[in-house]
Design a protein around this nucleic acid. Sequence first.
DNA 1: ACCTGAACACCGTTCAAGT
DNA 2: ACCTGAACACCGTTCAAGT
Lengths: 183, 183
Amino acid sequence: MAPRHQPALDRDRVVAAAFEQLEEDGLEALSMRRLAARLGVQAPALYWHFGDKAELLGLMSARIYAMALAETQGAIDWRGWLVAYGEALRRSFAAHRDGALLCARARPPQAIEPEVQAARLAAPLVALGLDQARALSAQAAVIAFALGWAMYAANGPMRDHLAQMLDFDATFSQGLAALVRGL
Amino acid sequence: MAPRHQPALDRDRVVAAAFEQLEEDGLEALSMRRLAARLGVQAPALYWHFGDKAELLGLMSARIYAMALAETQGAIDWRGWLVAYGEALRRSFAAHRDGALLCARARPPQAIEPEVQAARLAAPLVALGLDQARALSAQAAVIAFALGWAMYAANGPMRDHLAQMLDFDATFSQGLAALVRGL
DNA sequence: ACCTGAACACCGTTCAAGT
DNA sequence: ACCTGAACACCGTTCAAGT
């Protein structure tokens, strides 16, 4: 067997480096060229592994959502699941610089058909007794609230001033609880 | 009196043209150079009227928020005001292509001090009997929900499929009502 | 299969110079 | 006061060519 060269890059290595770059300089500075430089490679090399930059951002955003989903466990009923998921989402968005903005801008990796995707997303809630349509809309509402809050908290007009007047996290939790109670 | 040349540009004309450009090609294509071309001018001319692109985007986002605020009237109590504001925000975000994304990304024009800004924002709710801290946090929650929903609705992973299963606007309204009820 | 070099068509922004 | 011309330091992406 002739020795085969190990490829310098693979998708996981690139995504990991992209998260590092994001942490250090924010979303605006996350360019394909800088990312390539960090990986010791020329920019076009990335296009062997990703169709375009949007695909990379989509994978990063999927990873942020997956992180929240992995933290959501042990719920007894669907309301409990939604609250746990909302809290996990907020932590997940806050865990990476510009995390919410990234998820807002990224087009999700829609490899599979929407029907399958929808069934998969709704599965945890369906297992707890919700029908699929209500599961999807409830989940969408919780994601919207967490996403919007994370963005507001990261960039809001009076963020600093607000932070002196109230507990940001507690207010989020109250809003989330209210939303889920009313669904 | 010697005749004075009318300036070709002013801030309002530029903002109006920017909204046209946004409608036609979306946020990604809203560049200073294209905007200048639409105005029959060279790109650096814009920098006489705006410090940078972020300032222009901030003004656009402020206009979107102001549009919602202007539509919010006739509320009898603070819950009614919040629901009306939330609905108006959703319409306002939807009224311009990439409206929610624009507002999410834009740094707000923070000309005035945060204390004054906070008091001004809270004023309608304070007039209806809420103290300022609760007014600000309630308003933040409603904005977060509307912003997040608009973004999710514009770009969601299963938007098309979801739209077949449920009424998007009705679901938003239910979520908003639930949130406000619980605050 | 995986990456480089060179190029194309763009960006935001600055700044001297024009009027 | 208000705008142009030219330039700087970047972008994402394509594509032939290398190995």
